[in-house]
């Protein structure tokens, strides 16, 4: 019973703390650029403001335009239910949920692409075609990474992979994990639309991918889109922590253990976020035509990781 409550709490943590994570990233980026920066609670205020605004819908739009943000948000929240955060178990677990997780994220993207096309502006079409390109190229390496880890752990569920990894020796770094981590880092950047692939703060028509898709949205729909985007970032960061550094998760459900698990989770997340902020402030965005090559590196690393599961015997 206690475990069940914890599972719900960790899922809500992923969903509700996501805007805060975004706020912290922009604050860190501001500090690196010697600026004051907005408060870390700003994304919440922004969401509040958008939820209370009137929604404007283009004349040509159909039901798809209105329902796309809701579908994307729902899919992302359900995907959050599969991730282990504080202890190696999740709200929803089934053998093979690594595939479900990937496709829940894909459903969100698919819905957003359709919605952008339905909006009727030329930017929406441009954005969704670019998004489709990036999504198609990022899906294969993400799958291969998860497959490689599933082969090692001999289980197809995210929380059981985490549970298996905790039992391993921290110092026995395996080649598979290193390659998979490198591939997943590249994929995570592409999936969440961060800087080397897409700039979340720009509205320059030549470069934007995700922003071009959401250009026609306003009010509550835009709020849902922004929120699900923030959750997605949180999801992928937590996925990396859960798959590659789950040490510190509490194995028993006690208040003290859970507090320690929360602390270590926050610490690991902070490391990832600082890394992301430094990379975003020091790396230039790639040209659109260089993005496939960037993701090709991830594919190569992921394939190598899968093959290494056969080569190296543990």
């Amino acid at each position: 019973m206690m475990g069940f409550v914890i599972n719900i709490v960790q899922m809500l943590l992923l969903v509700l703390a996501a805007p805060l994570l975004r706020g912290i990233i922009s604050k860190l980026k501001a500090w690196i650029q010697k600026r004051q920066g907005a408060s870390v609670w700003r994304p919440y205020a922004n969401l509040w403001k958008l939820f209370h605004k009137e929604e404007l819908v283009p004349n040509t739009a159909t039901l798809i335009f209105r329902s796309a943000p809701v579908v994307a948000f729902a899919a992302t929240v359900v995907a959050a239910a599969f991730l282990p955060v504080l202890h190696p178990a999740a709200f929803l677990t089934l053998d093979g949920d690594i595939f479900l997780f990937v496709y829940l994220l894909a459903i969100g993207r698919f819905a957003m692409s359709l919605g952008a096309l339905d909006g009727g502006s030329s930017f929406g079409g441009m954005g969704s075609s670019r998004e489709a390109l990036v999504a198609a190229l990022a899906e294969a390496p993400l799958f291969l990474v998860l497959t490689a880890l599933a082969i090692l752990a001999r289980t197809g569920s995210l929380s059981e992979i985490a549970a298996w990894t905790i039992r391993q020796n921290f110092f026995d770094v395996s080649t598979v994990h290193l390659l998979a981590l490198a591939a997943l880092a590249i994929v995570a950047v592409a999936e969440t639309g961060r800087i080397p692939v897409d700039n979340p703060t720009t509205h320059l028509e030549l470069t934007m991918i995700h922003e071009a898709m959401v250009l026609e949205y306003s009010g509550p729909s835009l709020a849902l889109i922004e929120w699900s985007q923030a959750i997605k970032l949180n999801l992928l960061a937590t996925l990396m922590i859960g798959l590659f550094a789950p040490w510190g998760m509490s194995l028993t459900v006690t208040p003290l253990g859970l507090a320690a698990a929360l602390g270590t989770y926050a610490l690991k997340l902070a490391c990832l976020v600082i890394g992301l902020a430094v990379v975003e402030s020091s790396v230039a965005k790639l040209r659109m035509y260089a993005v496939p090559d960037f993701l090709r590196v991830a594919s190569a690393l992921a394939i190598l990781a899968v093959i290494f599961t056969a080569i190296t015997k543990r």
């Binding site: 496939p292 090559d293 960037f294 993701l295 090709r296 590196v297 594919s299 190569a300 690393l301 394939i303 190598l304 093959i307």
Partner: peptide
């Protein structure tokens, strides 16, 4: 770079 990594793998 992408192809290079493929070949090197």
């Amino acid at each position: 770079p992408g192809y290079s990594v493929f070949v090197m793998s």
